[in-house]
Write a protein that binds this DNA or RNA. Structure first.
Length: 500
RNA sequence: GCGGGCAUAGUGUAGUCUGGUUAUCACAUAGGCUUGCCAAGCCUAUAACCCGGGUUCAAAUCCCGGUGCCCGCACCA
C-alpha cells in the first residue's frame, strides 16, 4: 500500500493519529489508539522475551528519561548533534558544511562548534556550488536535543534523552555492584527518546518522540563466549561495505560461520543472527525483505568499530529502511563517562586484570517496527483487508461473535468474560452480519474468531461447542468452549530463543 | 530548513480553472425490518469545505499568511 493509504487505514481503525489532531497536529508527534497501543506493547514484550531471553545475565532496567547536562557533554551529544547545513540565500539550495569545506578541510568538521564552522566557511570564501553566489546563510548552533530547565529558576540544565543507550551506560556501575560482578552483562532499556528533528517525515519513521528498545552488552574484549554453534549455519542476507564500494546494491546470503571466517568476531555475528531470527521468526518479516547493510568506516559514527543496520524493504516507504542495528562500540562510552563523572568504570574480575568493558549495542526502533508490521502484514486480499499479524502481537486475540445477537448474545458475552478472565484479549461484537464482523476482525489483525450459534445453546450433540475460525486460512472447526483458553494461550505467548 | 505539489463528513471523492440554490457520490458508522457462518438487501439517521485575514453584494471556489501532509534535497534511529 502507499503511505497515505496505509496511514488513512491506521487512523480510521484507531491505531494511531497525530498528536493534538483537533488543533491541526504537530509535526513528528503521534498518539497510539487502543489497537496501536496494544500492538506496541506486544512488540515490546516480544522484544523483551527474545533479547533478554538470550542470557540470564541480560537484564532490563527502566531509567528516567532526563539526562543531566554533564552526561551529554561527556557522551558528545552536546557538541556533535549540530546542524551543519549551509543555505544559499540567492538560489535557495542547501549543502552540508563538510561537503562545502572538503577542499580546505578534508578531515571533516566533527567536533567543531557551529560558530567554528561558520567562521571557516566565511574565511574560505566558499561560493554556492549551484549558482556561484557568495551570499551563504551560515550554520547556526542547533542542537537536536530538547533541553529543559529543572527547578524553580530552571537553573539545573538537563536534556530529554536523545537515545536510550546513555541510560544503560550510566547504570553500568550500579549494575556491576548489584549483580554478579561478572561479564558479559546486558542492560536493556525500552524507553522514549526525544529529538528536535528539523524535518520529521513518514509518520512513524521520523518522529520527535519515539520508543527505542536497546540492549547494551558489556563484555571483556579478551573473551566474549557465545553459543555460536547454534547460529553457525544461519543464512544471513548481508550487503558488505566492501561490496557496496565496488558497486553492489543487492544483499548476498552468507552463513554466520562464513562471516566469522571473513574476520567478524563470533560474539558479533551471533547477535546479528539473533537479530535476524527475531525479525524473521518472531515479527514474521519475510526473509527476502530483510538485509543487513554494513556501514563503511566513513558512514558510521567514529566510535563504532562494526555496524550492520537491519533493514526491511517497506513498500509504503519506497524501499529498504532501517528497523534495527548492531553496533560494536568498543570502550568509547564507559571511557567517556569515566572521564566525565570522575568515577572509575574499569573493572577487575576476581583474579584478572583491570580493563574498561567493551559494548555491543543491539538497537531496535519500536515505532518503526509497528509501521513495518502494518506495511508487511496488512494487505488487500480481494475484497478482504487482512492484517496477518503473528498471533502474539495481535491487539485483539480473539473475537467472540454470536451468530444471532438476540439468541446467542448472552452465551457469547459470558464466554467473552471467561476468556478475558483467563488473560486473553477477547472482544465481543454483535453488530452487522457475521461476514462483516469477520472482516472487521481480519482488518484489526485478530487471529481467532469464535462464533456462538444455535448448536452451542441447543440441547443437541453440539451443545457447548463453538466454531473456531482462523483468520489466515478462514478454516473453521468445532471446539468445546471450555477448551478455548488452553487452545489459544500457547498461540499468544511470544517465542523465546532456543539457547543452551 | 530549502524547492515542488496537495488540504471537502470516519475513509475515498465531485464541485475550485470560469465566485452565485439545501455542497455530489460511494463505502464506513448508528437504529429498524429481513437474513442467519464470511463486507447480502430495504428504510432511516449521524456526519465535511484545515486555521486566520483580505477582495466582493456574495468565497469551498480568488488573494495573503499560518498549520498539516506527500515527493525531492539535506538530516536521521
Amino acid at each position: 500500500m502507499k503511505i497515505d493509504e496505509l496511514y488513512a487505514l491506521l487512523r480510521r481503525r484507531g491505531v494511531l493519529w497525530p498528536t493534538a489532531e483537533i488543533y491541526g497536529g504537530l509535526q513528528g508527534l503521534y498518539d497510539y489508539g487502543p489497537l496501536g497501543a496494544a500492538l506496541k506493547r506486544n512488540v515490546e514484550n516480544a522484544w523483551s522475551a527474545w533479547f533478554l531471553g538470550l542470557s540470564p545475565d541480560y537484564h532490563r532496567i527502566e531509567p528516567a528519561e532526563f539526562l543531566p547536562e554533564a552526561t551529554v557533554r561527556a557522551s558528545g551529544h552536546l557538541e556533535n548533534f549540530t546542524d551543519t547545513e549551509v543555505t544559499c540565500e540567492s538560489c535557495g539550495a542547501s549543502f552540508r558544511a563538510d561537503t562545502l569545506l572538503e577542499k580546505i578541510r578534508p578531515e571533516g568538521i566533527d567536533g567543531l562548534s557551529a560558530s567554528d564552522v561558520a567562521a571557516l566557511v566565511r574565511t574560505s570564501g566558499a561560493k554556492c556550488p549551484s549558482c556561484g553566489s557568495s551570499s551563504l546563510k551560515l550554520p547556526r548552533a542547533f542542537n537536536m536535543m530538547l533541553g529543559v530547565g529543572l527547578g524553580v529558576a530552571g537553573g539545573e540544565k538537563a536534556y530529554l534523552q536523545p537515545e536510550t543507550a546513555q541510560a544503560s551506560y550510566l547504570a553500568f556501575a550500579r549494575m556491576w555492584d548489584v549483580g554478579r560482578r561478572a561479564l558479559p552483562l546486558g542492560i536493556g532499556v525500552i524507553g522514549r527518546a526525544y529529538r528536535n528533528e528539523i524535518a520529521p517525515r513518514q509518520v512513524l519513521f521520523r518522529m520527535r518522540a519515539f520508543t527505542q528498545a536497546e540492549l547494551q552488552v558489556f563484555f571483556d574484549p579478551a573473551g566474549f563466549p557465545v553459543p555460536f554453534a547454534t547460529v553457525a549455519a544461519e543464512p544471513l542476507p548481508v550487503l558488505r561495505a566492501s561490496a557496496r564500494e565496488s558497486g553492489a546494491t543487492e544483499a548476498e546470503t552468507r552463513r554466520a560461520s562464513e562471516l566469522v571466517a571473513a574476520g567478524i568476531p563470533e560474539f558479533y555475528v551471533y547477535h546479528l543472527a539473533q537479530m535476524f531470527r527475531f525479525l524473521r521468526d518472531v515479527l514474521g518479516y519475510p526473509a527476502e525483505r530483510l538485509r543487513f547493510l554494513e556501514k563503511s568506516e566513513k558512514e558510521r559514527a567514529f566510535y563504532n568499530r562494526i555496524q550492520f543496520d537491519a533493514e526491511a524493504r517497506i513498500d509504503s516507504l519506497g524501499g529498504f529502511r532501517e528497523v534495527g542495528a548492531v553496533h560494536y562500540r568498543g570502550d568509547y562510552d564507559l571511557t567517556r563517562h569515566a572521564a566525565g563523572s570522575g568515577r572509575e568504570l574499569a573493572v577487575t574480575p576476581t583474579g584478572g586484570a583491570t580493563f574498561v568493558p567493551h559494548v555491543l549495542e543491539l538497537t531496535f526502533g519500536v515505532d518503526r517496527n509497528v509501521w513495518a508490521l502494518a506495511d508487511l502484514h496488512l494487505a488487500r486480499d480481494g475484497e478482504r483487508t487482512v492484517w496477518k499479524l503473528p498471533a502474539f502481537l495481535a491487539p485483539i486475540e480473539v473475537g467472540v461473535l454470536p451468530l444471532i445477537g438476540k439468541e446467542h448474545g448472552a452465551f457469547a458475552e459470558a464466554l467473552t468474560a471467561t476468556l478475558l478472565g483467563r488473560g486473553l484479549a477477547a472482544r465481543y461484537d454483535e453488530a452487522g452480519s457475521i461476514g462483516r464482523r469477520y472482516a472487521r476482525m481480519d482488518e484489526a489483525g485478530t487471529p481467532f474468531c469464535v462464533t456462538v450459534d444455535g448448536g452451542t445453546v441447543g440441547d443437541g450433540p453440539e451443545h457447548g461447542t463453538v466454531t473456531l475460525r482462523l483468520r489466515d486460512s478462514r478454516a473453521q472447526e468445532r471446539v468445546p468452549a471450555e477448551a478455548l483458553p488452553a487452545r489459544l494461550e500457547a498461540a499468544v505467548r511470544p517465542p523465546r530463543p532456543a539457547v543452551p
